[in-house]
Amino acid sequence: MEAFLISTSVVALAEMGDKTQLLALVLAARFRKPWPIVFGILVATLVNHALAGALGAWVTSHLGESTMRWILGLSFIAMAGWMLIPDKLDDEEELDKHSRWGVFGTTLVVFFLAEMGDKTQIVTVMLAAKYSAYLWVVAGTTLGMMLANAPVVWLGDKLVKRVPIRAVHVISALIFLVLGLLALFLPGTGVLA
């Protein structure tokens, strides 16, 4: 359950102001059909995070515990720094290229591609490497993505304008920093043990 709760909360925070959240806003404004967009986001996220989680689980099985602890600790600290760098949406031409596939197909493809190498995908790899509960991590990271993106699809920029994105990024960065330090210096705490 810890893997699920941490995965959900970390990804929901990390996703605030992320390029995929901006993409959800663009899709909602362009198509004005929230259900196929939300379903496309869900399917794209499930596939993307299942692959990322599988990679994380595979990495864990091939590295020693001490090496993995250092990789995870330093990765979480690096993620803290990355959270402070604002994202921008540069996928407009991807959106135009795939719009002939309908709302669901366009959302599925562009969201999946936008998630490749994104913060939340890398976090999913790291969390799956940390926890032996692969399915709980994928379920948690997917729920976190949906908690951050589905409201944007329905409420659009009304919601985005009210949320202090910079504050959310700072809080996310602090959480990643704490997780990294715990992994490095207190490996037996249970939080990242």
Rank of each mutant, 00 (worst) to 15 (best):
K130H: 12
A150D: 08
A133F: 07
T141M: 06
G140T: 09
K130W: 08
A133V: 00
A150H: 08
K130E: 14
Y131M: 09
M145H: 14
W154K: 09
K130N: 15
W136S: 14
A139I: 10
G144H: 02
A139H: 05
V152H: 08
K161V: 10
A133H: 13
V137F: 10
M146T: 06
K161N: 12
A129M: 12
L135W: 15
L135S: 13
V153F: 05
V137K: 06
A133P: 00
L143S: 09
G156T: 08
L143P: 10
Y131E: 04
D157T: 11
R162A: 14
W154H: 05
R162E: 13
V137W: 06
W136V: 00
K158M: 12
A148W: 01
L155E: 02
L155N: 00
A133Q: 15
W154A: 10
Y134K: 11
L155T: 00
P151I: 02
A148R: 02
A148Q: 04
G156D: 09
P151F: 01
K130S: 13
V163Y: 02
A128K: 03
V163T: 11
D157N: 14
L135H: 11
V137D: 06
V137G: 05
G144C: 08
G144S: 07
T142L: 02
V138Y: 09
W154F: 15
K130Q: 15
R162S: 14
L155P: 00
P151Q: 04
V160S: 11
L155F: 13
D157P: 00
P151E: 04
N149K: 12
A129I: 06
A139T: 07
G140Y: 08
Y131V: 01
A148N: 06
P151N: 03
A139D: 02
L155H: 02
D157G: 15
L147P: 07
N149C: 07
V163Q: 03
P151Y: 01
V137H: 07
A133Y: 10
A133R: 12
W136T: 01
A150G: 04
V160C: 01
N149M: 07
W136L: 15
L147W: 08
R162P: 00
V137R: 07
N149E: 11
V138S: 07
V160H: 00
L143M: 14
L147R: 06
V153I: 10
L147V: 14
L127C: 08
V163K: 00
L147M: 13
V163G: 02
K161S: 14
V137S: 05
K161W: 03
L159Q: 03
L143G: 09
T141L: 08
S132I: 04
K130L: 15
M146Y: 09
P151H: 02
T142I: 09
W154G: 00
V153Q: 04
G140M: 04
L159S: 01
V163S: 02
V160N: 07
G140N: 10
G144E: 04
W136K: 12
I165C: 05
A128R: 04
L135D: 12
W136F: 13
G140Q: 06
L143Y: 10
I165L: 13
N149Y: 01
L143Q: 10
M145F: 12
L135E: 14
A148G: 05
G140R: 08
